[in-house]
């Protein structure tokens, strides 16, 4: 038997390497389960097609104009749905005992969670890319420049990172992965819909406008529009970042507390 030297602690470098390995594992899972890839590929494409052709004419007069208005928001909405995969994956690991196996290994305590979230960022980037390509085929045009586009993507990924903590909390509290998905649909759907993603705020009743103006989805959609299509973006970028920080401040400690209680 080889007796390896016993390390007193795990270094940050080791932790990052373990995070990459665990992110690789999540990506390999997708390769074995192509349905999951279908979920965050086909669903957003359907949204784009449905909203563009069903609502486009009525709301904006033409499908091209509507797409220019709605696509940035659809990308935001889809981003929020995709964060739910962090929660379903974590929940599966917890219920199947994989999480315990990982915790019994001499790896950084934060690596399993960080690996999941890193893999989620890859899925996010893929979804954004896919939606942009489909949008462009249907007539969406970047009105700003590459820098604007990259800034929009960076903002979306930053918000996704923050919102992952909500997903982690749901993943820890839910009994099984299906319930995580159910939450994703029943809680996220109204939140994303009651925003200015699909229609302009001033078309809604006053009481609803108050919430729509507060909704982080509205700010993100505005920021993404500003950065991709053109128009003012600075205010909504700041509000989006404030929301992201607030979400982390509330949900990160809650998630860590809940995770420690569950395992």
């Amino acid at each position: 038997m080889t007796t390896a030297t016993i390390e007193p602690r795990v270094t940050v470098g080791d932790g990052l390497r373990q995070t990459l390995t665990l992110a690789w594992r999540t990506i390999v899972q997708v390769r074995h389960n192509p349905w999951e890839l279908g979920d965050y590929s086909i669903q957003p494409i359907m949204f784009v097609l449905l909203f563009t052709y069903v609502f486009g004419g009525a709301i904006a007069g033409s499908t091209g104009d509507y797409l220019t208005f709605a696509l940035p928001g659809i990308i935001v909405m889809n981003m929020l749905f995709v964060t739910m995969y962090v929660g379903t994956g974590l929940n599966t690991d917890l219920t199947k005992g994989v999480f315990d196996r990982l915790r019994s290994l001499p790896i950084a305590r934060w690596a399993p969670l960080a690996g999941r979230i890193l893999a989620d960022q890859v899925k996010q980037a893929w979804s954004i890319f896919l939606l942009l390509v489909v949008g462009m085929i249907l007539g969406f045009r970047i009105g700003t420049n590459l820098a604007g586009l990259l800034a929009a993507v960076a903002l979306l990924l930053t918000f996704a990172l923050a919102f992952s903590w909500v997903s982690v909390l749901v993943g820890v509290l839910a009994k099984d992965p299906e319930r995580v998905q159910l939450f994703g649909f029943t809680a996220l759907f109204p939140v994303t819909f009651v925003s200015n993603v699909f229609v302009r705020t001033d078309t809604m009743p006053g009481w609803l406008q108050a919430w729509v103006k507060l909704n982080p989805v509205t700010h993100l959609a505005d920021a993404a529009r500003g950065l991709m299509v053109g128009g003012p973006a600075a205010d909504s970028v700041v509000w989006s970042l404030v929301w992201a920080a607030a979400i982390v401040a509330v949900f990160a400690p809650l998630s860590v507390y809940a995770l420690k209680r569950r395992v």
Partner: peptide
Amino acid sequence: HQVRQLIGMTGQYASVDETL
């Protein structure tokens, strides 16, 4: 952390990833 370097664990509660 030192203990984890010495042990291997198997059982109903420490499982492999069944999708891999």
